[in-house]
């Protein structure tokens, strides 16, 4: 199963990954990270929809996303 990992404390909550996700599974976390931003995250259960296209990671300005197929 494809897996997207967000380094939540690096994320600045810009939302560029949310815009480009073709499966629309990324959303802002309700928690604040150590920087004070709502980081991007994939809710439990939605990860199985991920197709490992890496679009989110390619648009992430902070290289906070890692993708494994």
């Amino acid at each position: 199963m494809a897996q997207v990992t967000f380094r939540e404390d690096i994320c600045k909550g810009c939302g560029l990954c949310i815009d480009v996700c073709p499966k629309h599974i990324i959303q802002f976390s309700e928690r604040l990270n150590t920087k004070g931003y709502h980081s991007a995250t994939v809710p439990d259960g939605d990860m199985e929809k991920c197709i490992a296209c890496t679009f989110c990671a390619m648009m992430c300005p902070d290289v906070a996303i890692e993708v494994v197929p």
């Binding site: 690096i10 600045k12 992430c60 300005p61 902070d62």
Partner: peptide
Amino acid sequence: PTHYCPGCTHGIVHR
């Protein structure tokens, strides 16, 4: 971690 503002595309170009 970069000091750029949220959404700044400098980070993409760096990468």
